[in-house]
Amino acid sequence: MEFRLLGSVAIVTEGGDIAAGPAKRTSLLAVLLLRPNTAVNVTGLMDALWEDEPPTHAKTVLQGHVSRLRALLAAHGAEAYGVELTTQGSAYLLRMPESLVDAHRFEELVGLAGTQRHAADSVRMLREALSYWQGPALTGTVPSGPLEAAATALEELRLTSVEALAEAYGKLGEHGRAAAVLRTEAVAHPLRESLAAALMTALARAGRRSDALDWYHRTRRLLAEELGVDPGVALSETYAGLLRDAGAVLVPAPAPGNIASP
């Protein structure tokens, strides 16, 4: 038994994925998985399960979801994996080995990648970490503030990890791979200047200076049209470096050691 947060929230068993149930029950599971072995009080859970003001019967509804989730876990042998949903006064706690949660394994690998002395080891760990992602984090939960904030933090770490993977590829001289990794994310996040700057760096070092310049002008136009702003320092200096030198770029992607957990 394992648990997924990096994609559709689910209980993963040998027989396949098991959905927790309706959105509120899925959200309950997500909140508890985000804080394993930590008591989460009823107020915090209600804030996560109801986007607006919780109804008067919210505690009763929450208790019902807890009971059904507890039964679902028991039905799939959770006890054998050291997983137990317990009540502690006015709080609930999901006691479990944290390694059963994909988000925990992802963050752990990202942290380890940042401590490696050899770029090849960083590449291996970051690739494994990113392989846990099967879609947007916390898919299937209600659109509440606490859960959206958690999903945003996980996505930020994912993007930072992609930039770190490209940096590690660059250290190995595999600039084409670095550009391929970055381009996918730069297309999906066209206003993220750090991605654009890193992609320009990789493209230039791969001998594609013209493409790197084109990417700068594309990003500059989007920033002006969407946000009404000029490129920031990192992007501007990367562009200036391209103009000064046909093969060198001043601003690399963030190093794996600079990655911070959400």
Rank of each mutant, 00 (worst) to 15 (best):
S261D: 10
L213K: 08
A198W: 05
A137S: 11
E226W: 09
A137K: 01
A20S: 07
P97R: 14
L126T: 01
A39G: 02
L147P: 00
G207D: 05
L69F: 09
V162A: 11
G135P: 01
P262M: 11
A153Y: 02
A74S: 13
A206F: 09
L69E: 04
S8W: 09
G44C: 04
A164E: 06
A78P: 02
V66R: 13
A178Y: 04
F106M: 13
T86M: 13
R70E: 10
L5E: 00
L29Y: 01
G21Q: 06
D214M: 11
P54M: 11
N41Y: 06
L109G: 01
S8R: 13
T60K: 15
V83R: 11
L227Q: 15
A91N: 03
I259S: 13
S144L: 04
R220P: 01
E128Y: 12
A80F: 07
L69P: 01
G207K: 10
T87H: 12
E128T: 04
L72E: 06
E174M: 15
G64C: 07
V162T: 09
V31Y: 02
L94C: 04
H57I: 09
P262G: 15
L227H: 08
L49Q: 05
S122R: 12
P146G: 08
A19T: 07
R95T: 09
S161F: 06
M46L: 15
G77D: 11
L138S: 01
S144T: 01
A137I: 00
A39R: 11
T38A: 14
V249L: 15
A58W: 06
A168K: 07
T201P: 00
H189G: 06
A202R: 05
A153F: 00
A212C: 06
A186C: 13
Q116P: 00
L34H: 00
G16N: 09
G140K: 07
F106I: 03
A206E: 11
A150C: 03
I11P: 00
D47Q: 15
S122K: 10
G170Q: 11
L191C: 07
K171E: 14
V181P: 00
R124G: 02
L32A: 12
E79S: 15
P143I: 14
T201V: 12
A202G: 02
I18W: 08
A71S: 13
R209Y: 08
L191N: 06
E226P: 00
L72R: 10
A196C: 09
R220Y: 01
H189D: 08
E226R: 14
G232E: 10
A149Y: 07
A224G: 01
R209T: 14
G114A: 12
L85H: 03
R177I: 00
V9S: 02
A119I: 03
V83M: 13
P55K: 15
A20Y: 04
A153P: 00
D102L: 07
T115E: 12
T43H: 14
Q116E: 15
E84K: 10
A197P: 01
T219P: 02
Q116H: 09
M46R: 15
V66D: 08
L130V: 01
G7K: 05
A91W: 04
L172S: 08
R218V: 02
S27V: 02
V142C: 10
L29F: 03
Y239S: 10
R117A: 14
L147W: 01
V162N: 05
V123K: 11
D211S: 11
A164N: 06
A151H: 05
P231D: 04
L223W: 05
L242H: 05
A206Y: 08
S99V: 11
L62T: 00
E193W: 06
